[in-house]
């Protein structure tokens, strides 16, 4: 797929997300100030949201940045594992597919 036409993901609103986690715990709290909702997500989903705070990204770019950030290899975290995470975050109204 041409990278320029690949679908891009972005945070649903430009408003900031707040994160909080405690050492040794697997879940991260995410506060979405636009909706006032508080979500409990796993650490990888939280990392996806953090990366998208920089702006819209294609799945592949997002995946590569996640690998850099987490230190996972492509075998440990293949690209097709990113899709269900994004779908779940979309269902929580935290991210959306960028139309432009």
């Amino acid at each position: 797929m041409d990278w320029a036409s690949a679908p891009r993901w972005r945070l649903l609103t430009a408003s900031s997300l707040k994160f909080h986690a405690w050492p040794g715990e697997e879940f991260v709290l995410v506060f979405h100030s636009a909706s006032g909702d508080t979500h409990l997500v796993d650490a990888l989903s939280a990392e996806v949201l953090r990366r998208l705070q920089d702006g819209p990204l294609t799945e592949e770019t997002l995946w590569r940045r996640l690998l850099e950030q987490t230190g996972f290899s492509a075998e440990e975290f293949p690209l097709d594992r990113l899709q269900p995470i994004l779908t779940q975050l979309e269902q929580l109204s935290l991210v959306e597919r960028a139309t432009a």
Binding site: H20, A21, W22, E25, F27, V28, L29, T38, L40
Partner: peptide
């Protein structure tokens, strides 16, 4: 109880 879960209960 993990603090994250305690947080949600308190909220």
């Amino acid at each position: 109880l993990p603090k994250a879960l305690a947080f949600l209960r308190l909220a």
